[in-house]
């Protein structure tokens, strides 16, 4: 099973940085489905879920930026209250740390994207609980 890939990039925590990255993706004709920005002090890390992670990563590197692919899990959930909570409960029950979580809706389907401490274990646990963990090609991007 292959995990979903996010493109993570190093940025400075100052105005104009998101625009700098999104412009590169737009020029490369890459669609952004989801973006997370984490910042502390002078630094930021941007994570993108995109239609073509390899291409996006290369597009950043070609501009001299630092980028790498990181694993994430994408899970399809019911679009109703408590959707994310069932996942969080399930992971907590197995002592798996949730580093980052977000979601999006596409064509009336709801998806949760998470980064956890142990992706293989998390995938197994979630699947055993009946969740549908998606692979990259299955994502509606």
């Amino acid at each position: 099973m292959k995990n979903v890939k996010l493109v993570a990039a190093f940025a400075e925590n100052k105005p104009g940085q998101v625009a700098r990255f999104t412009q590169i993706l737009a020029q490369a004709n890459i669609n952004i489905r989801w973006l997370a920005v984490a910042s502390t002090g002078p630094y930021g890390v941007m994570k993108f879920l995109v239609s073509d992670p390899d291409l996006a990563c290369q597009a950043f590197k070609d501009k001299g930026l630092i980028a790498k692919l990181v694993d994430a899990l994408a899970i399809e959930v019911a679009d109703k209250p408590g959707g994310l909570q069932t996942i969080a409960d399930c992971l907590a029950g197995h002592n798996i740390n949730l580093d980052n979580a977000s979601g999006f809706i596409k064509n009336d389907r709801a998806f949760v994207v998470i980064e956890v401490s142990e992706h293989a274990l998390a995938r197994e646990v979630l699947q055993n609980h009946g969740f549908r963990v998606l692979e990259q090609p299955e994502l509606p991007l």
Binding site: A8, F10, A38, S39, T40, G41, Y43, G44, V45, K47, I66, K68, V70
Partner: peptide, 14 residues
């Protein structure tokens, strides 16, 4: 920063 020094976590940069 170099690629080898980037682990995609902001805490690690600090």
């Amino acid at each position: 920063l170099e690629e080898a020094g980037f682990e995609a976590k902001v805490e690690q940069l600090m």
